[in-house]
Design a protein around this nucleic acid. Sequence first.
DNA 1: GATTTATCTGTAACCGGTTACATGAAACCG
DNA 2: CGGTTTCATGTAACCGGTTACAGATAAATC
Lengths: 339, 339
Amino acid sequence: MATIRDLARRCGVSVATVSRVFNNPDAVTRETREAVLRAAALLGYTPSAPARTLATKRSCMVGLAWDTGHRGPGWRHPFLQELLVGLKTALSERGYHLLMLAAGEDADGHLRAVRRHSLDGVVFIDDGTADPALTRLAESGVPCVSLDRPVTGRRATYVTSDNAGGAAAAVRHLHERGRRRIATIAGPGRTHPGAERLAGYRAALAALGLPVREEYVVEGDFYLGGGHAAMRRLLALDERPDAVFAAGDEMAIGAVRAALEAGLDVPGDVAVAGFDDIEPASLVRPALTTVAQDRAGFGAAAAAALISMIDDPDAAAPPPTVLPARLVVRETSGPPRAG
Amino acid sequence: MATIRDLARRCGVSVATVSRVFNNPDAVTRETREAVLRAAALLGYTPSAPARTLATKRSCMVGLAWDTGHRGPGWRHPFLQELLVGLKTALSERGYHLLMLAAGEDADGHLRAVRRHSLDGVVFIDDGTADPALTRLAESGVPCVSLDRPVTGRRATYVTSDNAGGAAAAVRHLHERGRRRIATIAGPGRTHPGAERLAGYRAALAALGLPVREEYVVEGDFYLGGGHAAMRRLLALDERPDAVFAAGDEMAIGAVRAALEAGLDVPGDVAVAGFDDIEPASLVRPALTTVAQDRAGFGAAAAAALISMIDDPDAAAPPPTVLPARLVVRETSGPPRAG
DNA sequence: GATTTATCTGTAACCGGTTACATGAAACCG
DNA sequence: CGGTTTCATGTAACCGGTTACAGATAAATC
């Protein structure tokens, strides 16, 4: 492995000059610079990241704290893959790498990892429930961005979808399709998306001049079984809803199934809309009307927010990024002007 | 940030002693050790990973080379999430971290990243097509393990599922259900799973004493559309197959859809089995009979293979790991003894 | 031509660990 | 009891970069 000293000797210059060629090329004569670069190419020189980190305290690495939070080990992010691609791409364009942090342990584990590796920042992916690790980190002044979960902290911010707006769009869409008794299967209230989507549901009904009936609001768990159970409760009501907005696609699919099992037609008797546009949404029959998020945008926005904080150590954290959510109309919401 | 020298001064010992407390505790008196540990806890000391890496050439980090390979940017790993969990868990138990390598660029990009960060090894995730980057890395002597793709190299190995066995099990299952005209929608032949699953199909037919008709073998692309198109070709044959083994679930779902669109009953007229057990497999109706892989096992096996190579620098690479594939019987293969 | 200024380069300390080797004290031995 | 081992510890070089500061040279100024 060629080092900076090898290059220096070979070119008859000092190590400082070689270092400058890579970090501050303008501070060096053109000939010197080119000679050094030639030698570097010849020797296959690659600067050592640890050495640089040791000297500068900057690692050009950001941690990925990816925990399952409180929804248990079975929790899966609805689009981890696109998220990671977006994150990785945006980060690597700016010369940053992603280091996956080992899960959980104690609440300070992440903070220790940050110190141990001189991480420049960390991004949190979890299920949206409060996590002491994030809170600790955010308070400690390390640049943090979390996904789908609000944080406070001088150098902490978050990116999320327009959950309320998307939910409202779904509800408005069901209304446009002629439905009036619109229920919702909400997500767990302690999750940010769960709470926001419910808020969007309520706001949309209010804006449409429809009453919010509390028996039309049942809380699910974001999983298939929860959606199924919730739907059964809704169908057992005296005045059965003619449409259901489920705050997650798995729940929506569970709801559709429960309706079909009850001998009802979907969307004839009850229309259904979901949220997330997971892969199965387009594969089940009838295909699920849902709200899609800007998947790659999440990663890109997180990277951008993080880098802006890293670049300017004493700037305040940028405001939260709210990505647009887009209604995807398929079959479960029924044909236009039906109902 | 407390350093080893701070601890040394505070305890009245030398830096070497402090270092030994952490790396070779037995080489130090119990009292000294405890005093140092106490001071470390008190000061919140965390050893610096870059400094250690610089001195030892070992980073305790393995790279994750995650490329889309030749199946294009739309390619998604069927269970990236479980894979990463398995990998991360197994690695972190042994004190290793995962560094996500920036995609592609040139073929030597990965090798440079390895050198730059003193990575101890790298794991490759791609779509199973030949990738020069992996070949280069494997040849260079860096410990490598790839997923679902054979590699050769003194310190390179791979982990894969029993693709042939799983495919054979699916075919045998269709046969048991009374089907005799069993076709296959194969994956791209240049991918390892594609080739192996086809081999398993052929082997199973041979073992059952059934002829392999070449018109019953059509190649798909692992995607929905490919499965759909392939099924249409199969259904147009003079002697229509009464069962189809698709080498991937998306193709299988496409095939089911094509059959339904052609007015056929699934599984009544044609039974279908897939491979991978992707999430939608259990969500579509009729639910898809398929072959499930040991998802978490992939990550764990990759980590184990990698670590064994790292621990013993001049041992040969361990033999490939072949994880069991398990038949998951659902609805598309029909009821027992039907047909 | 002397003085100031700008530009480029070199020297050496430093980042925070590891480790070969030296040292001194205590334990062991015949 | 002198000599050898053993064991715990210390000294100092080293890993591969960065960077403050100083020095040298050339250009600009008067």
